Simulated scan of single mutants.
Amino acid sequence: MPTNDTLSFTELERRLRAVPDGPAGILNTPPLYRIANMVGGAGLIVALIPLVLVRLIPAAPWMITMVQIGFSVMVVAWLPVYVRQLWTLVASMWRWRQEQAEQLDHDRPEFEAIMTWLCQQPTDALTECQRMVALAHRQLVAKLGLLAGGLDRLGVLPALVAAYLFLRNVGDILDMPTWELLIAAFLILLWLIIVAATLMRIRLQFYEALLSEALTAKAQSGAVAQ
């Protein structure tokens, strides 16, 4: 069974997660806002259910009420989250030089400790882990390309297009064309998948960078010793 000193991705992730956030912690979503995100997502689902049911059964007044309640919950829950993210973005852009310097000063000793641990690992183990990360990254990129093509470069645009399709029919939401409903639902799902895959790519690239740096440091230390 691996110990805390044995190289494994589980142990590497544990050490990375143990690093304090520092000044960048302001970008993290507080627990209350995470709950608001979930409530807003539930409101969106409630609002979408009548749009599907109306294709199967005759429209009824309760469907409109359900859509109105769902969208109201979504807006009320997501509006504070959006305002906070916008404020955080503006504040970070305003002070980016100072915050970047403070974050680097904070991260340097933390990651030096992680690099020291990595450099204590056998070179063969580091190389094998690096190969596994590179392989996993290539597979993830291939899967994302098969699913989304180049849409991952569009950022939040698919979600904005979906929101536009819903808002342009807000006056008579139950009569929203089926093709628009399908496109909007697909774009929202696609955007969520792209976000998750992008976060996974960033983490894999981070793993690979740390392992490459550790291998380089071990090679340099070995050359100096000779």
Score class of each variant (00 low, 15 high):
95 R>A: 11
91 A>M: 13
68 Q>R: 07
107 D>N: 13
30 P>M: 07
36 A>H: 00
93 M>D: 01
82 Y>H: 00
86 L>D: 03
53 L>D: 00
46 V>M: 03
75 V>G: 10
48 L>F: 09
92 S>N: 09
70 G>Q: 06
99 E>P: 01
73 V>Q: 04
60 A>S: 11
57 I>N: 06
106 H>I: 00
61 P>Y: 04
33 Y>P: 10
28 N>W: 04
97 R>N: 07
44 L>H: 10
96 W>V: 15
66 M>G: 11
51 L>S: 15
93 M>T: 05
87 W>V: 09
44 L>Q: 15
38 M>C: 01
89 L>Y: 15
93 M>A: 02
90 V>A: 13
57 I>V: 13
56 L>F: 15
26 I>G: 12
113 A>W: 00
103 Q>E: 10
41 G>K: 01
94 W>K: 12
44 L>F: 14
39 V>Q: 13
38 M>G: 05
39 V>C: 10
78 W>M: 08
40 G>N: 07
90 V>K: 09
84 R>F: 04
44 L>C: 11
26 I>H: 08
51 L>W: 05
109 P>Q: 06
110 E>F: 07
36 A>M: 10
99 E>I: 15
76 V>F: 00
51 L>F: 13
69 I>G: 11
47 A>F: 08
50 P>F: 07
91 A>V: 04
54 V>K: 03
63 M>T: 13
55 R>V: 01
36 A>R: 12
100 Q>R: 15
84 R>C: 09
59 A>T: 08
98 Q>C: 13
107 D>Q: 05
41 G>S: 02
77 A>S: 02
46 V>T: 04
70 G>F: 04
71 F>G: 06
65 T>R: 11
35 I>D: 10
37 N>V: 07
27 L>Q: 09
96 W>I: 05
51 L>M: 15
81 V>N: 12
26 I>E: 12
59 A>S: 13
112 E>N: 06
30 P>F: 10
95 R>E: 12
41 G>N: 01
38 M>N: 09
75 V>N: 10
90 V>W: 14
81 V>P: 06
44 L>N: 08
91 A>T: 01
101 A>R: 14
102 E>I: 05
107 D>T: 01
91 A>H: 02
50 P>L: 01
98 Q>N: 14
97 R>P: 03
84 R>D: 12
79 L>C: 01
80 P>F: 03
27 L>D: 05
71 F>Q: 12
89 L>V: 06
83 V>R: 06
79 L>I: 02
32 L>E: 02
78 W>I: 06
102 E>H: 08
92 S>Y: 08
28 N>A: 05
69 I>K: 10
94 W>F: 03
103 Q>T: 04
95 R>Y: 14
100 Q>I: 00
113 A>M: 05
43 G>H: 14
110 E>L: 02
111 F>L: 02
42 A>R: 05
88 T>R: 13
